[in-house]
Simulated assay, not measured.
Amino acid sequence: MRFADTVTLITGAGTGIGAATARRLVEEGGKVVLTGRREAPLREVADPLGESALVLPADAVDSAAMKAVVAATLEKFGRLDGVVANAGGHGLGTALETDDAGWKLALDVNLTSAFVTIREALPALRVRGGSVVLVSSLAGLFAGPGVAGYTSTKHALIGLTRSIARDYGRDGVRANAVCPGWVRTPMADEQMAAFGAGKGLDREQAYKVVTENCPLGRPAEPEEIASVIAFLASKDAAIVSGAVVTADAGASSVDLPTIAFVD
């Protein structure tokens, strides 16, 4: 029960990693505040969690909206102990293919959403010596093809993580980043469908192809990433701050030029 008597705000909580994290923290005794732009998925996640979950629909890019979310959290629970900045997802296209609107969208959805959420939560977190976990990506460490906006903003989340850790550590606030590889989420399912359609593969075959050079040879389940987030958010990681944790089936340990030597 690592999260007994704690309250954690989770952005992008309606599906995938955010939803799995909400369930995991409640399983371990915590209370969660679920936010995102679409109320229906948030309700679907929250309903089985009962009184342990509070749904507050909001756009994490909107400062006023997130200030209101934090205020409502404090009014309901009287405290805020952690933030999981999970919202994100846009940024497809090479640099030449990305217009100003596409670039701004990538910045807003992946980076500004995390920055605004954490900034508005920090006063409350400083009171509790709270924890921040930012969900970056393997694209926060390496560049994939044709995802300039996504890659740039996921890299920037690591810089934000370290800045928060550096500036607020003396207040007891910890900040860490998680970099997942492929995870079975609705967004990844859509990508596998698009990838597979061009190669005559179904979704499962597509997942197998994109993970075949990972040492574990498979994508993660959202619950597996939620386990990593739960560790970083918990007192078990009390000395961990400013860390970047890969959860990528070993993908980042592979020396790409040596793949040619494998039969």
Rank of each mutant, 00 (worst) to 15 (best):
G16Q: 00
G146E: 13
A71D: 13
V33T: 05
L49I: 00
G198I: 01
G181P: 03
D5P: 02
R170T: 12
A22F: 07
S131P: 04
L80W: 02
L92K: 08
A148H: 04
G129I: 13
L9Y: 09
D81G: 00
G130K: 07
S241N: 06
R170H: 13
S152D: 04
K199A: 12
M187F: 10
K154M: 03
D108H: 14
F77Q: 00
I239N: 09
P180M: 06
E97N: 07
L141H: 12
T211F: 05
L160I: 03
Q191H: 12
E190V: 15
D167C: 03
W103Q: 10
N86F: 06
S131G: 09
V254T: 07
K104W: 07
V209F: 01
G196S: 10
E190C: 08
V33D: 01
E223C: 12
L92W: 06
V228F: 11
L216M: 13
V183D: 04
A114C: 01
V132Y: 02
P222M: 01
T98K: 04
D5L: 05
A237W: 02
V69W: 08
T117P: 10
K67F: 14
V33G: 03
A106I: 06
L42S: 02
L232K: 12
V254S: 10
V183K: 09
A72M: 03
S137V: 08
I158M: 01
A251G: 06
R119V: 02
A249E: 10
A121V: 06
T98A: 10
V83N: 05
N176M: 05
A194H: 12
M66L: 15
A197Y: 05
G250F: 03
S113N: 08
Q191Y: 10
I225N: 10
D167K: 04
F115K: 01
V45S: 07
P145M: 10
T21L: 00
N86H: 06
S253R: 09
T185I: 04
A71L: 04
G130Q: 12
I17N: 13
V173P: 11
K67P: 03
L49E: 00
V69Y: 03
R2M: 00
G93H: 10
R203F: 00
N213S: 12
D59Q: 02
V7S: 00
I17A: 13
S113C: 06
G242Q: 03
V132N: 04
T35A: 11
